[in-house]
Design a protein around this nucleic acid. Structure first.
Lengths: 236, 236
DNA sequence: CGGCTACTTGACATCTATCAACCGGGGTGG
DNA sequence: CCACCCCGGTTGATAGATGTCAAGTAGCCG
């Protein structure tokens, strides 16, 4: 059995914030920007930065998983995305963080001071282009998620999440139907706009229907992988 | 009484897709890009382009209002944003449209073929930068909306919408408490992830509580404008 | 062993969707 | 010119999905 951590780190870099796998800065630029990069290491559950605090740094995940979220005054939380290695965290153009980020697993990241990062970015058209392309992909994903949050049922949300998440972290071949779920039920619920109880019940239901099996590290998809999970209403 | 159309066109360019009001292309670049720009004019309710059709053009609204939306196979629709004059429509980096756009009012727009548009964009670092900044703002708005869709009650969603919409289209001074609502109830509902009936009931409730008055062109906010509408739970 | 945390399960409450009737205005056609 | 119809909107009755509250379980760590 492959541990979640291992499964995650094995995956080929599918970073949403890399322009198709190309590094944002290359060669000289990378070493130039490297001058002011610092490596940091955070334990699971650590907060990397907090919504509405001054945004002084941009981070790039090198290992581990983190979640981006926003909260209301009374504590209600909406996870707006999960970050995987390669993804950038922070708001280069804003003095203030637009969201919070927590480490889900232990996390390693490169830290760039925002000022110098921005300067380098603006001085490198190819980096600018990569970043624009990456942010454009992010916004597509955000809009997909809006559709899900606003118009799907609990079960559709959950199934859609499993499918999308598997596509993002999954490997091909023999293990494709093992979906690691390193985040807690609360994280899943807060991502889908549900409660943990509902998520738990959905899991039980899908297990009763022999669609998935719940294992400690995540889920095992049963049967002809593609068919039963696909929510035919989604994705026209 | 000011008509909606008039109110909208009077507003100072608050385009979310302009970098703080700076035009994306300036001077020579603008005239260069102007070579392949075409002006188009569409009646209300016209579809400008459709999700998943090939993306051949980028549009920039010059007047009117449009809505961006995604749909599920069975017709459920989620509006992911409204576009105002200045906003760009289309996916420069993608061969395929990521969403549909309908004109809400009569609309005028500049049309750029995607290829040449992209070429010009990539050749102009300052335009790239503006675009990146604009898309970054878009994604912030998208995440705010996710929080709303996933974690707010119907009333909170609606109030939040009125406040945000007023900030976007509203003028200051005497008319600040007149909020034009050029879109239909269905559009509002599809933006908030609700049904038209619920939106209608919320309006009735807020009117009963003397918070707003429903007028043909939109809403009149009653009382000390800021206080009663503000949903204290949102925006910590 | 004990307590903590994450998770599960059950009973119940409530919000919002659904279904249906109704209203009013504007356009159209007789 | 009037009647009708259509469309967008409102209102009411009801149902169902999901949230809430509460209890119980299992694994983990001290």
């Amino acid at each position: 059995m492959v541990g979640v951590q291992e499964a995650i780190s094995f995956r080929e870099s599918a970073s949403a914030l890399f322009g198709g796998g190309k590094p944002l800065f290359s060669g000289d630029e990378r070493s130039e920007i490297g001058h002011f990069a610092r490596r940091i290491n955070l334990p699971a559950k650590a907060t990397i930065f907090n919504e509405s605090e001054p945004c002084v740094a941009i981070y790039q995940l090198t290992s581990g998983i983190a979640c981006l979220y926003k909260t209301l005054a009374d504590g209600r939380r909406q996870i707006v995305g999960f970050a995987l290695p390669g993804d950038f965290l922070g708001s280069p153009f804003s003095d203030q963080c637009a969201y919070s980020v927590d480490a889900i697993s232990e996390v390693m990241a490169s830290l760039f001071l925002r000022g110098p990062f921005l300067t380098s970015l603006l001085a490198n058209p190819s980096a600018l282009r990569s970043m624009l392309e990456a942010v454009s992909k992010e916004i597509d994903a955000a809009r997909d998620h809006m559709l899900m949050l606003g118009r799907c049922t609990a079960e559709e949300k959950f199934v859609e999440f499993i499918i999308t998440w598997r596509a993002r972290v999954g490997r091909r071949g023999a293990l494709a139907n093992l979906v690691p779920l390193p985040m807690s039920r609360r994280d899943v619920a807060d991502f889908l706009g549900l409660t943990i109880e509902t998520v738990s019940r959905l899991l039980a239901k899908l297990e009763r229907e022999n669609v998935v099996r719940v294992i400690p590290e995540g889920l095992q998809l049963m049967g002809p992988t593609e068919r039963p999970l696909l929510c035919e209403r989604c994705h026209n």
